[in-house]
Each structure stands twice: as structure tokens, then as C-alpha cells.
Design a protein around this nucleic acid. Structure first.
Lengths: 143, 143
DNA sequence: GTAGGTGCAAATCGTTTGCAGTACA
DNA sequence: TGTACTGCAAACGATTTGCACCTAC
């Protein structure tokens, strides 16, 4: 399940952040997108309708949303940083190399591998990064 | 198995790249390290013994080595880009959040998950990113 | 000999910060 | 009303590029 604007707004309030019009717009743009967004792309989208919203606000909003896990940072894509909307559960992402669409999946239990690694390497595992890249159905059909 | 200097040199030649003294030094520094290295860290190491080697050369060498898969780019660590020495086989990494040491592991078959994802999402999977972060044995003992 | 490689400096890109003004709670 | 937020501009760090010189093959 993807997070809605309402839920995100509630989470912000709950953590003592103010719900400003700028943040509303940024959150709206993120939830409206079905793909990954770089800060610059998000700025472009937002700036069209709201030319007074600055890039700094985009960065600061993304930082807050990231710290509350309302958005997820993606790594598998290109070089720069990019984000996608979060979900309430732990999950992973598949990113389309054609159009940038991001699809979540969950229900994959990585802990057996973690246990094996702890046994074999002596590491105490703290976290993991698991993402796939591929071609979504639409991009495959258009090819 | 980690790649040796010799193998890397051979791979460079094979792809039509020249084996300059600067590249030898950079490759030597990478193979000598057991952890992840940012371009800046690599530069610092190299620059001590060879003050005439510039940062530009580090970047250009890393780009070539990366394109030949002789070094691997790491994502799970901090914000910036970092690299570690490659291996001939497909493998994944565990990165120590304490000291930065990188340990490879292989023998983990991710294809069942890929098939499930193709079935469920219609994506044709092209690649994946799988890394773990944790605390290595030494760092755990020192804590 | 020549194509490719190097080092420097400058340009560029993405991101962060200082500050004065503004507005949500 | 007060504190957090905003936008601008400037600062900053990392990476790339232009160019003249050099060198491995």
C-alpha cells in the first residue's frame, strides 16, 4: 500500500512538523508520481504551478520525509539521488530502466541469508539494500 | 577470489587501454586495501607516495576499471560514491559500518525471486543491487 | 610516430548554509 | 506571539572538461 497525502500530513503533525502550503504541494507531487524523482525533477514539477517554491524547500522537505520513512531513497538507478513514495511496511523496489516507474514488493524474507552471513563472516548484520532494475510491461510492449 | 594487480593489468591491455605508471599505482592502492575507498581517499593514499598523480587521473582510472568490472561501486555506505576491488565471479558485498571493511559473498541464488517478480509484476528483470551493512568481528570485539 | 593518457586550472553540478523576512500553531 | 519555515544568494564539495604537453605501444 502506498502512503496517501493525508497519512503523510498526519505523520508530519505527529512528529511536530508544521504543515505548510509548500509542503502540501511537494507531498502532492510525490504521491502523484508513480516513479522515481530526483530533487531537481520534483522541483521542476512543483515550480511550474508554484514558481515561488524554491529548490531549498524541496531538499529540506525530502530530508524530513526521508527521516520519517515517508519516502524511500533509491540507489539502483542512475548516479544521483532519487526518491519514491513510501509504504507503511518494509518492502523493496523494482525500477524500470525505461520510464523510471517504481513498483514495490514485499513478503520476501531475507533473514535466512542474514543468518548465513553472520555465521560465515562474523558480521552482525544491521541493514540491507535490495533493489531490482528491469523493464516494465508497458516499456516491453512499446519496444 | 579477489582480482590481482596482474589480472587487472592484463584486462586493461586486452581492452586496448595503456598500462601507464599512474594506473599501476592506482591499481596497486586499490588491491592493497581491504575496504571501500572513495575517490578522495584513494587520491590521498596515492598522492603521498606519488605527489604528481592528480585527482583527475584517479577519476578517469576508476571509470575505466568500473566499466570493465574490475572494481565495484558500493551504494549502501554513506552518501558519496565508493569503490572496492572486484572479483571474477558474480558476488555481493557486506560493508562494515565501523571500519569500512568490505567482505564479498557469493553462492546466493537470487533467480527464484526474480522469477516471482517477473510473474507478479510483468517486469523483465535486468539487474539487481544487493548489499548488507553491519559490524565486522573486529569492530564488535572493540566495542 | 601517433593515439591515447596526464596534470593543471577552470567550469560545472548537486547540495548545504547564513540570513532576513514570513506564517503556522 | 513565538518558533519553525521559507526563499534567496552565496558557499561548498565532488566531479567533469578544455587544453597543452607527454608517453606507452
Amino acid at each position: 500500500m502506498r502512503l496517501t497525502e493525508k497519512r503523510i500530513a498526519a505523520a508530519l503533525r505527529q512528529h511536530g512538523y508544521k504543515l505548510t502550503p509548500q509542503r502540501r504541494v511537494v507531498i502532492g507531487a510525490i504521491t502523484a508520481s508513480r516513479g522515481q524523482l530526483t530533487p531537481a525533477e520534483l522541483y521542476r514539477k512543483v515550480h511550474q504551478e508554484h514558481p515561488n517554491i524554491g529548490l531549498t524547500t524541496i531538499y529540506r522537505t525530502l530530508e524530513i520525509l526521508g527521516s520519517l520513512e515517508l519516502v524511500c531513497e533509491l540507489h539502483a538507478g542512475g548516479s544521483g539521488r532519487s526518491y519514491t513514495i513510501g509504504t507503511p511496511e518494509h518492502h523493496h523496489h523494482i525500477i524500470c530502466s525505461g520510464c523510471g516507474e517504481v513498483v514495490d514488493f514485499s513478503g520476501y524474507d531475507i533473514s535466512p541469508l542474514e543468518e548465513r552471513l553472520t555465521r560465515e563472516t562474523g558480521f552482525e548484520i544491521e541493514g540491507h539494500l535490495l533493489e531490482f532494475t528491469g523493464r516494465c510491461q508497458r516499456c516491453r510492449q512499446n519496444a
